[in-house]
Simulated scan of single mutants.
Amino acid sequence: MGQVLATPEFVENFDHEQLADLACLALSQLRPVYIRHDIDFLSALPEERLVTLKEYAESAVIAAKSMIIDDRRKDRKDDIPVIFSKQKFDDDIELEWFERPILQKE
């Protein structure tokens, strides 16, 4: 993802906030790949798979690009107050299914 966003097409046309948004939007479209050390990742994967992953990243960034270009937030006024109905998070509430760890403690 970093290699794709570091190209002049993106660096020269988007500010840091937009690049961060692009990364988040693009990463949310991709299947997670867990990497502990870059060198292990690069040496363990065949080149064909690396090319495929880069193509996926490029496609995800291109899809996210339209959301950044057509960002409705740029026309908002910053003087609208934000009101929270609940100011503190209740630590005693049970986690939602998507917040629970995949592996449970034994």
Rank of each mutant, 00 (worst) to 15 (best):
R36F: 08
K105P: 15
Q87I: 12
D21M: 13
D92C: 07
S43M: 08
R72E: 15
K88V: 11
V4G: 07
L42P: 03
E9V: 10
E9Y: 00
P8Y: 06
K54D: 02
A20E: 10
F84I: 10
I35F: 03
D92T: 15
K105T: 14
V11C: 04
A44C: 07
I69S: 08
D15A: 06
L42R: 09
L45G: 04
T7Q: 15
A44E: 11
Q87T: 13
L95M: 03
I80Y: 08
V11M: 13
S66M: 02
R100M: 15
A26F: 01
K74V: 12
E9L: 08
I68P: 02
L95C: 00
V82S: 00
D91Y: 05
D40M: 06
F14M: 02
C24G: 01
L42I: 06
L30A: 08
Q104I: 11
Q18I: 12
T7P: 03
F41P: 00
L95K: 12
L19F: 07
S28G: 14
C24V: 13
A26S: 04
P46Y: 08
I62A: 08
F98G: 01
W97A: 15
K74F: 00
Q18E: 14
E47G: 05
E9W: 00
D40V: 04
S59Y: 00
E9C: 04
L27C: 13
Q29C: 03
I39M: 01
L19E: 06
F10C: 04
D75L: 12
E17V: 15
F41H: 11
L50G: 01
L25V: 04
M67F: 03
F89E: 11
T52A: 03
F10D: 05
S43Y: 03
I69R: 11
E99R: 13
E12Y: 03
N13V: 05
H37A: 01
I35R: 13
E48Q: 02
L19R: 12
F14E: 00
D75N: 14
Y34L: 14
E55I: 06
Q104P: 06
A44Q: 11
S85C: 11
V61R: 04
I68S: 03
E47N: 11
E99W: 10
P81W: 02
S43P: 04
L30I: 09
M67P: 01
D90V: 01
M1F: 11
D79G: 05
A44N: 10
L53H: 05
I93M: 07
D38T: 06
P46A: 15
R36V: 09
G2H: 10
Q87G: 13
I39T: 06
H37C: 01
R31H: 12
Q29S: 07
M67E: 15
R49V: 00
D70W: 02
I68Y: 01
D92M: 09
K77Q: 09
E58A: 09
W97Y: 10
Q3D: 14
S85D: 10
E96I: 06
D91H: 05
A64L: 04
P101R: 15
P8V: 05
V33Y: 09
L27D: 14
A6R: 14
R73Y: 07
D70Q: 14
I80S: 02
I35N: 05
R36G: 01
S28F: 10
R49P: 08
I93D: 12
V51A: 06
F10L: 00
H16M: 14
F98Q: 02
I39H: 00
S28I: 02
F89D: 06
E47F: 06
A6N: 12
R31I: 08
R31A: 08
D92V: 08
I80W: 11
D79T: 09
D38Q: 07
